[in-house]
Write a protein that binds this DNA or RNA. Structure first.
Lengths: 211, 211
DNA sequence: CCATCGGCTGAACACACGTTTAGTGTTCTG
DNA sequence: CAGAACACTAAACGTGTGTTCAGCCGATGG
């Protein structure tokens, strides 16, 4: 029995949402069909009836999550040009913390997707990588980013740094004392990241120069 | 039946190693005691005989991995002073790729530890975070790193960027076309990271100055 | 009004899992 | 050299799993 959030959703959607939350929190393997059914307030047989199998449910959840992530980008896709202005790095984590309700299971689900080498996760990563490269190229062209010696690696580095905040959210929270996906946390984080991306984190050795 | 690498190791160690590799590759839950036993060339009952239970085995593997990571640091602990010279950021990933044999399951196991919220992983992260802070403080004191506005966040950012390379190894490899934990990959990666940490990734807006 | 169909359920099934048990050799030890 | 201790196994046990099955109920439509 569950309850939370089933405000006139179809049973199928309720099951999908329950599965999303449970999968995100504890991993696909650790969650049983019976638990999902209980959380959704339905019988285990209904889960199979709607999704064919547990794997089918997993695929549906993957698709739903991927769609939700895409919607996130579409939402702010226009601001992509603004990001190119260069006075702020458009961060995945900032996007998440602004567009997602505080208790959303999506960041944790993304973590699972990327961790398990799930095709859905690789797909997402590939698309985001392409986006990052385009963004970086655009910024370089506009002169707000210096030309990179190895653009492919630089784009990967920037993307991966961004994802790390989501992947290691819990560990970071424990270390710095504030959840980095809350508005307070993301502010502190972004300030420091921006500083480093603008001024570097180490000083140049004497006699060195930026090329 | 297995074989690989049981060159006069005790059966207990063989089981532990097989479990380490399988856990790293597929996750604790997805691996059965029977598989581990088969991989180690022993009976399932012997696994329980030596480790009490599957959870006991898991704890032993955790401890073994933690010890291996600590040894990695002890190995190069003296170079910590050298790292302070500031002409190179001592990177976890570089340490890994230099000290570990190419096929080592340890990076993948570390990924599991950190991303499953395992206490062993949190412990490791906490210790590495403390180390990073000390390192950064030392560098600031010596004038090779500029003072950070928020040292706690800056240290977390540096550590997390480093770990991201290990966490997303597979995705990065797919994106840039080379495994970043090989010597070729780590070289390309380190060059770009060093450049960003020295010179930044974005140019300063007009009228801005480093404080 | 009856037939049909889809959402939904309780009970059961087959199976794979971690673990137990009872036992066999082999190796220490007094 | 007896006997305890140890490494190890084959077979079985109980449990929890994903899934199936037969059927109920309410709405739809001819």
């Amino acid at each position: 029995m569950s309850s939370v959030g089933d405000g006139d959703l179809t049973a199928k959607a309720t099951i999908r949402n329950a599965a999303l939350r449970l999968f995100a929190d504890r991993g696909h393997d650790a969650v049983t069909v019976r638990e999902i059914a209980a959380e959704a307030g339905v019988s285990p047989a209904l889960v199979v009836h709607h999704f064919g199998s547990k794997d089918g449910l997993r695929a549906a959840v993957d698709a739903h999550a991927a769609h939700a992530f895409d919607a996130l980008f579409a939402l702010e896709g226009q601001d992509l040009a603004a990001a190119l202005s260069g006075d702020n790095w458009l961060s995945l984590a900032e996007l998440f913390s602004r567009a997602l309700p505080p208790g959303s299971p999506l960041p944790a689900y993304l973590r699972r997707l990327l961790l398990t080498g799930d095709p859905a996760g690789s797909d997402l990563f590939g698309r985001w990588y392409a986006l990052t490269r385009r963004l970086l190229d655009g910024m370089t062209e506009m002169g707000v980013a210096p030309p990179a010696g190895d653009p492919a690696v630089r784009a990967a580095f920037l993307l991966v740094n961004d994802l790390a905040l989501i992947l290691l959210r819990g560990q970071i929270a424990a270390a710095i004392g504030v959840d980095p996906l809350t508005s307070e946390g993301i502010t502190r984080w972004a300030r420091e990241v921006t500083a480093i991306y603008r001024e570097g984190a180490f000083v140049l050795a004497p006699g060195e120069e930026t090329p």
